[in-house]
């Protein structure tokens, strides 16, 4: 019968019989470790966010939800005013154009301007015709008198 193996009777070694690491391994290891150390800038950047890691998971989730909701609110707020400005801008630019120029444009651009349009315009601004109708009151009266009677009823 073979004798049972006793660990105390076995020659003790400082470590198991494993193959040695490659030659020069321990000369290179410190350099490789030093090369892998975090860059100071990176550690500063992580320090800024370190407070986040100290929060509880539930609090971090809540904070993330608030951040997402906040993002929606801000984007909604920022997207509102430009639409208003978009509609207001043409009105503002038209206000900068004088009435005389507007009427001149309408008369020369082939747009259909009815006599009634001119009547409304002159009623609101009696002096507006002075800008584009270079005629005296007498000349105007003469022209109007020459119109057929049925046309006069529309003026």
């Amino acid at each position: 019968m073979k004798p049972p193996f006793k660990l105390d009777a076995h020659p003790r070694r400082p470590r198991p019989l494993l193959s040695e690491p490659p030659a020069g391994y321990f000369d290179q290891l410190p350099l490789r470790v030093m090369a892998r150390l975090p860059h100071p800038d990176a550690s500063e950047a992580t320090a800024v966010w370190r407070w986040l890691s100290q929060l509880s998971p539930a609090l971090r989730t809540s904070l993330a939800s608030v951040a997402v909701l906040g993002g929606f609110v801000v984007s909604f707020y920022l997207s509102g005013p430009p639409a208003v400005r978009h509609f207001a801008a043409p009105t503002a630019s038209l206000n900068a154009v004088s009435h005389a120029e507007l009427v001149g444009y309408l008369l020369t651009s082939g747009a259909q301007v009815e006599s009634a349009d001119l009547a409304v315009l002159t009623a609101a601004h009696p002096s507006i015709t002075q800008g584009f109708m270079e005629a005296t009151d007498a000349e105007l009266t003469e022209v109007l008198d020459a119109q057929p009677s049925e046309d006069l009823t529309y003026l």
Binding site: R15, P16, L18, P21, F26, L29, P30, M34, L37
Partner: peptide, 19 residues
Amino acid sequence: AFNQLVRKYQSKVYWHVRK
């Protein structure tokens, strides 16, 4: 200092892990 620390303990750490 850290380089000294690595040089001092690298062998013991390596063999502890290797085992």
